[in-house]
Write a protein that binds this DNA or RNA. Sequence first.
RNA 1: GGAGAGAUGGCAGAGCGGUUGAAUGCACCGCACUCGAAAUGCGGCAUAGGGGCAACUCUAUCGGGGGUUCGAAUCCCUCUCUCUCCGCCA
Length: 442
Amino acid sequence: MFDIKWIRDNPDAFDKAMSQRKNVSVRSSDLIAIDERRRQVIVRLNEAQEKRNSFSKQIGQAKAQKDEARAAELMAEVARLKEFIPAGEAEERAVEKELRDALSTIPNMAFDDVPVGDDESGNVEYFGPNGSPETAAQQRPAKPSFSFAPKEHFEIGVAETNMDFEVAARLSGSRFVVLKGQVARLERALGQFMLDLHTTEFGYTEVLPPVLVRDDALYGTGQLPKFEEDLFFTPHGENRLALIPTAEVPMTNLVREAILAEEELPLRFTALTPCFRSEAGSAGRDTRGMLRQHQFNKVELVSITTPEEAVNEHERMLMAAETVLRKLGLHYRVMTLCTGDMGFGARKTYDIEVWLPGQDTYREISSVSVCGDFQARRMEARYRPAGEKQAPRYVHTLNGSGTAVGRCLIAVLENYQQEDGSVLIPEALQPYMGGLTSIGGK
RNA sequence: GGAGAGAUGGCAGAGCGGUUGAAUGCACCGCACUCGAAAUGCGGCAUAGGGGCAACUCUAUCGGGGGUUCGAAUCCCUCUCUCUCCGCCA
């Protein structure tokens, strides 16, 4: 969420940033006009309240001195103000809400170094800080080569028997899957492997959060009010709870309404949770296989930092996510999303796209975003800078997948498939598979 | 699910209709004392929004929201959460 004061002071920068976003038509002048009305109401209301308070004090004093006549006189005086104050308060509430509603649907502003573009065709490949295509190619696993035509994940022998879309459809409808046997185990192994990696090598604290959350939490991270149709809700008493679309929601909200000490930062959290998305806008896309499901597992990374550290933390988080793929020997590339392709709360986003030989293409497996104070402002998440008597400042928040477990399963299956329908197990995963070196063999 | 109690500043904890943004203690910061530290003493120490070049000033906030009142941390309604007891339960 934007700070209206910032918009007031930087209307041109705001308008320029918004013009680069997709489907955003808001103008700073509209917002400033609301703010103008808001401030006028506040001035009038404050004046009336000041008078009332002053009179009320005098009434108290008069009563203390048993001067009832004087008290009655003052009460008559203040009665006239009473006509305005409740109306003024209601008006202030209304205009505050109007401003908040307007601000809460405005997406974040991209950093200056984010490429400008309308859609994913404007994304730019990223090779790491000070990186080049050559250095990146050295550091990242190479594309595998096959002596046969590689299949898509759901066509591979071991998956055909252990990845059941038909029975899932009978239970739950389309975009669900039932995993069985060694494929289910492989999914579990991947999740454990990723959590262990992030907690032991990158200092993330493991979290097991609720997967049902309130509207407030979703508002905090930016899914509400604008993206309600992407979520699943379940009734709960008079209210409702949402199934989390990502563990970013509960983990980022761990610091909501908190004032942290600077010494506590950065906070780094990781969780393996199921995620639930209605995929309302994705009808007809990726309908085969388990690439796009209503329910999938994901290991998520969340960092809470100072403003100064946020950009460094972004690179660090990207590296943590990349390390998953490096250790698994999966070829990938990293894209910097352009202004038109970025998510609502992000100031800059890197997507990691893993190579899927069966599809003969790269597919997103991780998205790593730095959000600045956008979410912190919505959540009232602050920290007190070290040193004496500093006012609290908003924290900066980051989130990234580390990585999507279901998609990683697909990637392992497609990249390690053998002609006989079996799949080799990457070395890093073998301890999590009871030492197995392959699954689905005869 | 039933019955009851509660939610106050970073923490603990008073206040229960009048000049209370809020006693007191702890924590924290500054100063004094000290060779230094501890102890002690003195002072400071919430957040947000307005107005003002500034000094400064006004308003709001005692879990959230609404109400009663000239005036609410204090009274009423409502929501959320916590605790105790009973019931149920993986």
